[in-house]
Design a protein around this nucleic acid. Sequence first.
DNA 1: GCCTAGTGTCATGAAACTGTGACAGCTCAC
DNA 2: GTGAGCTGTCACAGTTTCATGACACTAGGC
Lengths: 224, 224
Amino acid sequence: MAGILLVEDDPSVRTALELALTRQGHSLTSYATGEEALEHIRSRRPEIAILDVMLPGIDGVEVCRRIRRLDQLPVILLTARGDDLDVVVGLEAGADDYVVKPVEPRVLDARIRAILRRAESATSDRITFGELVIDRGALKVTLAGKEIHLTPTELRLLLELVRHPGQVLNRRYLLREVWDHTHVADSRLVDACVQRVRAKIEPVPAEPVFIHTVRGFGYRFSPP
Amino acid sequence: MAGILLVEDDPSVRTALELALTRQGHSLTSYATGEEALEHIRSRRPEIAILDVMLPGIDGVEVCRRIRRLDQLPVILLTARGDDLDVVVGLEAGADDYVVKPVEPRVLDARIRAILRRAESATSDRITFGELVIDRGALKVTLAGKEIHLTPTELRLLLELVRHPGQVLNRRYLLREVWDHTHVADSRLVDACVQRVRAKIEPVPAEPVFIHTVRGFGYRFSPP
DNA sequence: GCCTAGTGTCATGAAACTGTGACAGCTCAC
DNA sequence: GTGAGCTGTCACAGTTTCATGACACTAGGC
């Protein structure tokens, strides 16, 4: 998933935060309860969790404790109460930061980045194009939070295209860079591979939004 | 020194903080200006720096930037102003936290501990991935509390993979790092060793949860 | 010398990946 | 509108890659 996990039960606050954080360029999945979040935390592998403290059922501090029992996942606790004792308890539960609502989106964003920077997971070189996230370190591609499996050649092709966003790359060039240079056969090879990649990453492969055909020249990667 | 470096120009605030933090069990050295602090930071090697933003001469944010240029030393910025923009600027300068004065000693202490805990876990000898605990100091690996015996090569391989969690490491790299650099050997050697490690640490070696094969590229360690 | 744990190599089968060609569908120039 | 040239789509067989287990070689303890 490679994004933020948000847990907030109040729908209006949740929507506002979703909007604000998405606008700051984060990808995000949100839940209303701690139970749901804990259930999905293993499979979705978020980079950071933002937990409201006051939740129905398991509260945010307890969710934080349970996360800590297994994982180093960074956690920010979010609360309406600014009580000093709460802050101390929250941080002792293993939270990395404790933020009092209402919070300016820019401030929350800055705190998220500060924590991610330190967690160093931010150093993994990741590129994001809307819903499409390409992690060059982990060699993982995710679309709308769902991991996409690409074969080695497909991945090399996509990385090559992404390396030159907006540029048209012709078939000869792609054959040289992605396949072995010694390749003579200029068949439909590139086309077929592009098609395979599209089938996996394009929501509607017939109307590609990422990899565009430039008739007579080649292909161009340009984010939507 | 292994303590806190405090930079605060107001003598009364400085004395109050010194007293409070000492009472919380921290050892501490304080300076009135950023220049003095920067001068001593190399030799004294503090664990964490707490910088007032408003300082005569170089201000706290600038001190933070200069520290960042050299070092990972954790930094807390301390300020009388709670302006959102200040927070963002401060955090972007590389600060780990931004605290507004006046601050309850307990809260400051909790924030210091949260940051130190995280900084320590990054370099700590013991890393936990769910059931798997790797003690780099004692060179011991335990799975669900039971000690696992790994041979030297197996252990070096596992440590190398764990050193880059989530990253795909190719066979050439692993051969260079884990085995001798001058190894011409068949890269199937890596496969065999990975197999052996899996047989020991994976509950179901055929469906690995720790060491994943990335076909065509190499192996990736990522916790379940 | 003998035994053992550790290590590198190899054969094998299974699974995944890839190149290829045929053909349909589309686009553009005329 | 029409035809030529491009491109999309698909199935399939050959190839590559990997997991697995067996085995030989080595160094060091006894």
